[in-house]
C-alpha cells in the first residue's frame, strides 16, 4: 500500500512517516527539505492551499495512493478538506491514531469537545490529517529515493506577506510544569515558598478559588478550575489542594499529577498519580534543596 504525505515542517513529516512505515506503507512524500521517506519529492516551498491541492491532484493521479496524509496543522487541515471535496474521497482530520483494517482505515480522534474519544472507520482510498505530536520519530529503513518535483502556482488567493511567529511567553494554559496551591498554604507570606519551588522547576503558578477569590492572594487569572483556567501540563504539582470537583475539572488534562497534602483522604487523591501525605512546610524546603 502507498501513502502520499505532505507536511510543511520536516519534524512533523518524520513523525508521520515513522507512523506510516509502522503500518507497512510505502511513503511518497512532498517536502521542502530533507526528510525520511521512501520517495522524496523535494519541492520548492509553497504554502498556499491552491497550489498544494493541485500538486496532490497531479501526484495522486500518477501514483494512485491508498492514503493521502497531512499533518493536522491549520494548513494541513485546510488542504486535506479542499482536496477531499475535489476528489470525493472521505476525509478525517485531527486523527490521534490510525490503523489499517483490510481495505479500510480506523482512526481515533477527540469528539464532543474532548469529552470522548471517537473511533471511526472509512474505506480506502482516504484523506487524513494526523496530529503529528502523537507520534515519535523512529529509525526505519526508508528507500530515500529523491524525485524532482515542482509545486506550481494555482489560482485562488494571493499571499502578500508572511511573518514568522515569535515564541510567546507561556501562560498557565500552555505551561509544561505548573505548581498549584490551595488552602493548605496558610499565610500569604508562605507563597514565597511556592514561588521558590516554581522557580526551580521553571513552572507557572496556579491556585484554587479561595486563594484568588476569598483571600485575594493571587490575581484571578491564576485560578485553576471550572470558572478559571484549564491546564494541560506535563507535570502538575498540587500543594495543599483538597480537590473539589470544580477545581479538578481544570487539571483533568495534566499528564502527571503529584499532590502534596496532609489529609490522607482528600478527594485530590483520586486525581493524583502520586499522592504525597506530608506536611508541606517541612517537605517543600527539603524538595527545593534537592532540585
Amino acid at each position: 500500500m502507498k501513502a502520499l504525505l505532505f507536511s510543511e515542517t520536516p519534524e512533523n513529516f518524520n513523525r508521520l512517516s515513522s507512523m506510516l512505515k509502522k503500518l507497512g506503507l510505502d511513503i511518497h512524500g512532498i517536502s521542502f527539505s530533507e526528510v525520511k521517506a521512501d520517495y522524496i519529492y523535494l519541492a520548492n516551498e509553497r504554502l498556499d492551499y491552491p497550489s498544494i491541492v493541485k500538486a496532490f491532484e497531479e501526484l495522486g493521479n500518477k501514483l494512485n495512493p491508498d492514503l493521502y496524509v497531512f499533518s493536522s496543522t491549520k494548513l494541513g487541515k485546510e488542504v486535506a478538506s479542499r482536496f477531499s471535496q475535489r476528489t470525493g474521497l472521505p476525509c478525517l482530520t485531527e486523527c490521534l491514531s490510525v490503523e489499517i483494517d483490510g481495505s479500510s482505515i480506523i482512526a481515533t480522534r477527540y469528539s464532543l469537545g474532548g469529552k470522548t474519544l471517537m473511533k471511526i472507520k472509512t474505506d480506502l482510498p482516504a484523506v487524513i490529517a494526523v496530529v503529528a505530536d502523537a507520534f515519535e520519530i523512529e529509525d526505519f529503513d526508508f528507500k530515500m529515493e529523491k524525485v524532482d518535483f515542482e509545486i506550481k502556482e494555482a489560482d485562488g488567493i494571493n499571499v502578500i506577506s508572511r511573518e514568522e511567529k515569535r515564541r510567546e511567553k507561556v501562560g498557565l494554559r500552555n505551561a509544561d510544569v505548573v505548581v498549584c496551591f490551595g488552602r493548605g498554604v496558610r499565610r500569604k507570606e508562605d507563597i514565597e515558598l511556592i514561588e521558590k519551588l516554581a522557580e526551580k522547576l521553571n513552572a507557572e503558578i496556579g491556585c484554587t478559588r479561595p486563594i484568588s477569590h476569598d483571600y485575594r492572594w493571587l490575581p484571578e487569572e491564576r485560578m485553576i478550575g471550572l470558572s478559571g483556567e484549564k491546564i494541560s501540563p506535563k507535570l502538575l504539582i498540587s500543594i495543599g489542594v483538597s480537590g473539589q470537583i470544580q477545581h479538578a475539572v481544570g487539571i483533568m488534562n495534566s499528564k502527571t499529577v503529584i499532590a502534596i497534602n496532609n489529609d490522607e483522604n482528600a478527594p485530590m487523591k483520586e486525581y493524583s498519580d502520586y499522592y504525597v501525605i506530608a506536611d508541606l512546610y517541612s517537605l517543600i524546603p527539603e524538595l527545593i534543596k534537592l532540585l
Partner: peptide
C-alpha cells in the same frame, strides 16, 4: 464533592 461534580454549572 463527587455528587456536585455530576452537575453542570
Amino acid at each position: 464533592e463527587n455528587r456536585l461534580g455530576l452537575v453542570s454549572f
